[in-house]
Design a protein around this nucleic acid. Structure first.
Lengths: 141, 141
DNA sequence: AACTACTCGATAATTGTTTTCTATAAAAAA
DNA sequence: TTTTTTATAGAAAACAATTATCGAGTAGTT
């Protein structure tokens, strides 16, 4: 995996820096779909001098070289995902966590939209919001 | 329609003002899914003293009483829609326009997600991006 | 008409994100 | 390895969308 990001950066003329590796490693080892600030906080301990601007600039690059996708879960900030397969997400309106929606087949749906709109569809994002199992339990008590 | 918004506002304890009526009328008579600034610009001629803050405050109220929905088409600003049925939207990455995706049945899809995630799904937003027919033509010339 | 509470609009504040600038670190060249 | 080149990190300022504040004005009620 590290080989992958290292050569991808080099190939596109970007330099390989500890910050970039750290950010990508952190992102690819979590399922929490963090936003820039969450990434920043997470790396504070290990990289105390890192700035939020570096996180943003790095995400921009990682997006450009196709290593992360940007999620828009209807919040006021963007979240990031190192899983590049296009899958829906669901956000809990109580606790705010964002999870993957597993095992959903999108293709037929996308085709239908493509035909119905005459658009050349390049991508899509589906997000659901609701109450996660844990918060449902909390509320019923 | 005006009866509807007037009484809805009153019933919820909001006052009926010319600004609110103008904003809602403008929104309900367009298919362009404008954002706050577009609404503001559109109403400048008729209401030269109206402020952008009023547009935002009004949208907040209209959302609260269920007359508009807020769209998040992956841009840096929110768009608004007076059509309350939940339907997908598609944005052209060339010209930026946002259109409705007609005649799509979402229900089965939502059910599948509900069962797969154990979430109590309260709502969802689907947005697609791609190139609209007009821009496709422009590009091929 | 008078009263009360809500609202408007100007302005300031806030928040997420981007840009600018310069010392420095990474890659290339020697 | 040393030197040279070039991109980058980080601090701070800039920005853009949105929200909050506040005094004057207006809608709705009495």
């Amino acid at each position: 995996m590290e080989v992958c990001i290292t050569s991808l950066l080099r190939d596109k003329g970007f330099k390989v820096t500890p910050q970039r590796l750290a950010i990508y490693n952190m992102l690819s080892s979590t399922k929490s779909h963090p936003n820039a600030e969450m990434i920043f906080n997470e790396l504070q301990a290990m990289y105390p001098t890192m700035s939020l601007a570096t996180v943003y600039k790095t995400m921009e690059i990682l997006k450009e070289i196709g290593l992360v996708q940007v999620l828009n879960a209807g919040e006021d900030s963007f979240r990031y995902d190192a899983v590049m397969t296009n899958h829906p997400h669901v956000r809990c309106t109580e606790c705010g966590q964002v999870e993957d929606v597993p095992d959903i087949n999108i293709e037929a749906f996308v085709n239908e939209v493509s035909q119905g709109t005459k658009y050349q569809i390049m991508g899509q994002q589906f997000y659901f919001h609701g109450i996660c199992p844990a918060c449902q339990r909390k509320k019923s008590n």
